[in-house]
Nucleic acid binder design. Structure first.
Lengths: 181, 181
DNA sequence: CAGCGATTCTTTACGAGTAAAACACGTGCT
DNA sequence: AGCACGTGTTTTACTCGTAAAGAATCGCTG
């Protein structure tokens, strides 16, 4: 019950972020509400938006959108062929979206498709040499860029943050699986 | 240089999250890369996706999308009229998107527009009574739902997480302002 | 082995966001 | 006054994702 306020812990002294401002406005207009959840969810959303925008820069140079790169990355990191369904699950997107992206990526010569001999409904996708080279060239740039952006936080804090997010995420994912929605 | 691995801190014992799995796959295929940034950025993105999906539930019941609610919320929390430009800045979306949303929301009778008497280019938007009532009815449900979802983390960890995210966010926002992109 | 339900993927129709152009006004300079 | 220029907003053309329907195929059952 003591919640309601508190960025808690974490050394102050930095600039007030936009979420803190928004929360402050809500408190002024609806002091009866416990705005605690906003301090996490609002920030996660805003961070995701800003990070994506930053992260997109190295990808755009390679002529790839993030979802496209996710798809190529899934093929690269698993190391074997995947079906469209696998790719949809792996990239958390709909089957239809995967179909469209695959169409473009095969046209660009980055992935190849091969029909299954046993079950003719399914296709197997793999990276072409060009696709593999592209991923291998872009990923290090990508990571370097991300590292630069995250350097806003020192190493210890990065570790703490990764740990907390991992804990939240693993429980969210577990919960989703049970609640089925 | 010692990075590369480590969820660090945070009591283990929970399930492995999907990001940890993905990072493990990358390590197996490209052990030369420092995948540290993924542990934060990947998780932020994935958490944002899952939280939004969850968060959308109470909103959908009210017939609102998240961006629509953000717009109404901006009007409610500032307490005064805003121009389309203000709303675009406040909700971090493009002017064009705001125009479209305003069109729908005014048609639904949730916001009203009033032309400026001095400068006839600008419009002033405010919530109608119905709009205000809707926000005031939905927001508490929204927050309750968010609180439930976040209860995956105990109170202390929530505070830590909010603090770390706030620190990261305030520096990211500061950086964006200087780099101007 | 014919048929029916389940699956795997693709297609279609549509809604929503974006960038860039267009539009409508103020402002200040000459 | 006349006119270029900047600003605030809307419109246009296009891209991308989704949900729902469709098409092809498998496997089981009578």
């Amino acid at each position: 019950m003591t919640a309601t306020r508190g960025p808690a812990a974490a050394g102050d002294g930095a600039r007030r972020d936009t979420v803190a401002t928004v929360v402050g406005q809500w408190q002024a207009v609806r002091p009866d509400l416990d705005t605690g959840p906003m301090e996490i969810i609002g920030r996660v959303n805003r961070c995701a938006a800003l990070l994506q925008q930053a992260e997109d820069a190295p990808l755009r140079r390679a002529g790839l959108s993030r979802p496209e790169f996710d798809l190529l990355g899934a093929l690269r990191r698993t190391g074997h062929e995947l079906t469209p369904g696998d790719l949809a699950r792996e990239t958390f997107s709909s089957g239809a979206a995967v179909t469209k992206r695959l169409k473009q990526l095969t046209e660009r010569g980055l992935v190849e498709r091969r029909g299954d001999t046993r079950d003719r409904r399914v296709a197997h996708l793999r990276l072409t040499d060009a696709g593999r080279d592209l991923v291998d060239a872009v990923l290090p740039e990508q990571l370097a860029y991300e590292r630069a952006v995250l350097s806003a936080l020192d190493r210890d804090r990065q570790g703490e943050l990764a740990g907390l997010l991992g804990e939240l995420l693993s429980r969210l994912e577990g919960h989703m699986r049970t609640v089925r929605a």
